[in-house]
Lab assay of single mutants.
Amino acid sequence: IRCIGVSNRDFVEGMSGGTWVDVVLEHGGCVTVMAQDKPTVDIELVTTTVSNMAEVRSYCYEASISDMASDSRCPTQGEAYLDKQSDTQYVCKRTLVDRGWGNGCGLFGKGSLVTCAKFTCSKKMTGKSIQPENLEYRIMLSVHGSQHSGMIVNDTGYETDENRAKVEVTPNSPRAEATLGGFGSLGLDCEPRTGLDFSDLYYLTMNNKHWLVHKEWFHDIPLPWHAGADTGTPHWNNKEALVEFKDAHAKRQTVVVLGSQEGAVHTALAGALEAEMDGAKGKLFSGHLKCRLKMDKLRLKGVSYSLCTAAFTFTKVPAETLHGTVTVEVQYAGTDGPCKIPVQMAVDMQTLTPVGRLITANPVITESTENSKMMLELDPPFGDSYIVIGVGDKKITHHWHRSGSTIGKAFEATVRGAKRMAVLGDTAWDFGSVGGVFNSLGKGIHQIFGAAFKSLFGGMSWFSQILIGTLLVWLGLNTKNGSISLTCLALGGVMIFLSTAVSA
């Protein structure tokens, strides 16, 4: 259960009878995928790494000078000259100064003066180019299975845990398959586009800190620079940016070097996208990844198990997540596992009318040892309800109150669905055939309105939902006002479609 501690969480529900669903994975976010007769899966884009970055340009932001020398000439005696002028490691300046009897010249006039100092770069920052084909995306998957609280967001041991898996995709191999043991396998067909235009970005490294910066900004930095990788004795261009020549006297000129420019660069980098280094690879934390999940090989585990009949206890007080759902960790005293956990939410304890829904599909106890633990997640209705676990006299209950409203949740879900469709863009549509167009249209309606429909009408039977949709269509056909007619027709059509397409 990876997503319960992530604030940016998206719930995606598969269409009834569908074998695939489109998701948008982004750094700092987590996606929970639910479908009829399929286990619930949490998917998170953990890291995006980039390798084989080529150094484009380096800037010196802290330097020192040494070996200063000057040469001067009297008027009419030609130009002052130093051998160091031809050495690229030196920074030199030529000027004219007033000369006369007082400073060793027989004539009054302008004399030539040249001053040089050896330039040494102490600290530099480097910009590297990123090729999209060198990106690698690491995705962690977790099935809502027989897990306890100690396994949440624990990325170790996934090789031997059938509840978890790690997959890596690249532009050259965008397809992967996550093996989930008894739950089958989940196929991923990803489109490795981060949403960032790397043709316009460089990877900047300064003092063990890293950013993504725009090329134009990078090339306009007014500091000494050299092109390409460091060859040991780089040729620094624009050395004068960190060196200041003071007022010249008759035979000498003082040279000083400016202080470190790291603070000024940090100020200019305010708002830039931060990154990290992992050995020789860069780690990015921006952008998104679009994936199509193929769920035809994914299956529920323990459908044929019998119900657990022994007593359950709450190991922890049920807690609310950031998303309005409830996490419950229970301990089973029996030894008759594997068995299914009898769990439901009810409005009252007399009729036990089921409300809400299970995020953890078909929760089971897989071990036959005593005191096995299991964590599950529920989506309670707004208002008061009861969490009921167990059967008969051994069942345990917990009162729950959820604040908020169904309308607010439906609106929030619609906005999130619209954002998801905007990110998917043209990849969500198939114009290759008439059937493809209608299929894409259905998927689009489901992406945007599916979660809201589930919130508003999830407790009704599909037949009642179709009746309401048919009534809206009838009202649309018999209303003389054009805008009201079109609105009723659209709402009725969407409702009829979703009542037959969205899983219960």
Rank of each mutant, 00 (worst) to 15 (best):
A504W: 13
Q77W: 10
K84R: 15
G444R: 00
N371V: 00
E26V: 09
I484G: 11
L424F: 12
L113K: 02
F312R: 04
I65E: 01
M125H: 07
R175Q: 10
I365C: 04
E26T: 01
F449H: 12
A428Y: 05
R138Q: 15
I1M: 15
K123I: 00
P381F: 06
G100M: 10
P174W: 12
R57M: 11
K38V: 06
D348P: 00
T267Q: 05
N237Y: 14
W211L: 05
M15A: 01
V213M: 13
I448S: 08
A418V: 14
K290Y: 04
L358R: 10
I221D: 03
T76I: 07
P171S: 13
D336E: 12
L186H: 04
I387Y: 07
N439Q: 10
E62G: 08
E162K: 10
L378E: 07
A413L: 14
K251I: 01
C116T: 06
G195P: 01
E133N: 08
A504Y: 13
T414M: 08
T95E: 09
G459T: 02
I139Y: 06
Q89R: 10
E13T: 03
I1T: 15
K290E: 09
I396W: 03
G476M: 11
S58W: 03
D87G: 13
N172M: 09
M375D: 01
A165R: 15
G476I: 04
D379I: 03
R193T: 15
A501Y: 09
T233P: 13
G181V: 07
V434F: 15
K128Q: 14
D220M: 11
C308M: 12
F245A: 02
A333T: 14
I445M: 14
G232F: 08
V56P: 00
G458K: 07
L376I: 06
T48K: 05
S64E: 05
H219Y: 11
L141V: 06
R193F: 10
L486F: 15
Q131I: 03
S483E: 13
V423Q: 14
T267W: 05
R9I: 08
Q447N: 10
Y158W: 08
I139K: 07
V347K: 03
C92E: 10
T194A: 14
E320C: 02
E329V: 10
D37T: 04
A117L: 00
Q77R: 05
L486R: 00
G404N: 08
G459E: 09
E191S: 12
P39E: 07
E244S: 12
A418K: 08
G109D: 13
W400H: 12
V494H: 11
L486H: 04
T231Q: 09
V114S: 10
E320I: 03
T427D: 01
A272Q: 12
T95R: 12
V364A: 06
V6D: 06
T369W: 14
V169K: 08
I152G: 00
V317D: 15
T48Y: 08
E216Y: 06
G17H: 04
R193S: 10
V303N: 01
T40W: 11
H266N: 00
F438E: 01
F285V: 12
P354Y: 06
M140I: 05
V415G: 02
S146A: 01
L82A: 01
L25Q: 06
W20I: 03
Y305M: 07
E13N: 08
N478F: 10
G100S: 08
V255I: 15
A428G: 00
L293V: 12
N154P: 04
G259M: 09
N207W: 03
S72G: 14
P342N: 09
N163A: 15
A418C: 07
T115A: 10
T115S: 15
G459Q: 15
S173I: 04
R99E: 08
I139M: 12
L269E: 08
V494K: 11
G482W: 12
S16L: 08
S286K: 07
T479H: 13
M277D: 12
L258H: 09
E370V: 04
G145Q: 09
C488M: 15
Y61M: 12
G106F: 14
C121P: 02
E162I: 05
N238E: 06
Q36P: 12
D393C: 03
S51P: 00
V33D: 05
H401P: 03
A272M: 13
R138A: 11
F183N: 10
L441C: 05
F438H: 00
V114Y: 05
V415H: 10
R2D: 09
K419Y: 06
T500I: 07
S503K: 07
L204A: 12
S185P: 00
E370P: 10
D200Y: 10
I389Q: 11
A176Y: 09
W236T: 02
S146Y: 01
W225S: 02
I396V: 14
L82S: 08
V257E: 01
I445K: 10
W400C: 13
T48L: 08
T479E: 01
G476Y: 07
I365Y: 03
I1F: 03
P192H: 01
F457D: 12
D67C: 03
K443E: 11
L477V: 15
S185L: 13
L293W: 04
I407V: 11
A428M: 07
N154D: 15
F411T: 05
K480V: 14
C30E: 08
V50P: 00
L352T: 12
T48S: 14
G334P: 05
K251M: 02
E55W: 01
T156I: 14
V265A: 13
I341Q: 09
P234D: 09
A280D: 05
A270W: 13
H398R: 13
L352A: 07
N8D: 14
T156E: 11
W225R: 06
R99P: 04
Q331Y: 04
V388M: 14
I139C: 05
T369A: 08
F218E: 08
G181I: 04
I389C: 14
W474E: 05
H266Y: 12
K246M: 09
L456K: 09
A504F: 13
L107V: 03
